[in-house]
Amino acid sequence: MPYTDNTFFLYYNKSVLTETDVASLDGILSKCSAGKQFAYPMADGWYSSAFYFGKGLGFEVTYNDHLAETSIDCDFDNATGEAVTQAMWSYVKDSRFKADANDSKIAAGFNDGSIVAAVTGIWNRTTIQNYLGENFAAAKLPTYTLYKGTADEEQTQLVSFAGYKLMGVNNYSKNKTDAMDFAEFYCSRENQIKHFESRGFVPTDVEARADERVQADVCAKAITEQLKHSKTQKSVPSTLWIPLEGLGNAMITGAQSGSFDLKTQLKACVAAIEKTTN
């Protein structure tokens, strides 16, 4: 049974960035510097795929009756995909863009002020709110620039993965009915609101969301906005994460020397994603 959303959005420091800045990635970066960065976990496939989904690229998985993947089709490496990867690479190269971020680095960065905006999920909300205090603000993901510097330059919205956290019951458990009762209790409407009040987890129950406390919350607003530009996390190939990690890492490493073999890396990444072992 679901009890909260599982998606990511933008947290930012209100005193440095305004609402118009955070509408686009370039806007954010214009207010950043090498000492005040924007953090985005590029080496994590869950986040870096947002660039591709923004342009409508994706994957197709066929399953057999045993629910094993028999074939995976990923079009991240067609012409549009290459352009998207080129855009990602140009951002990673930027010294104001912190690409090798993870949860602990983002928290530490907000703490000492070296990060003014970051993309992460609801689970870090309390930590970041503690560090930013009144400067705490959240918004949906920004847009990024595709085909920069050419005639086709356009702004593409980052499209996040959207899912939800749920509580499940083990089919083999001895006290199955009791376990199911507990799950129902935990995910009930009142408890979702209580959960929201104590930890800030935005509820999934529709009526709980209509509660005014939830409506007023800035993260709930950001999530509701972001869910309009999201891709349901369903039928995701199990091979998606590691190759994207490799691609992100190659970009981050390449940023040191300034060279990144885009075509080879992208082809190898997609080949690894499409590899089924059945």
Binding site: I242, E245, L247, A250, T253, T264, T276, T277
Partner: peptide
């Protein structure tokens, strides 16, 4: 170690 899709790809993990 770092994931290397080019030399260590191929679904080998």
């Amino acid at each position: 170690g770092p994931v290397d899709n080019v030399y260590y790809g191929g679904g080998s993990q």
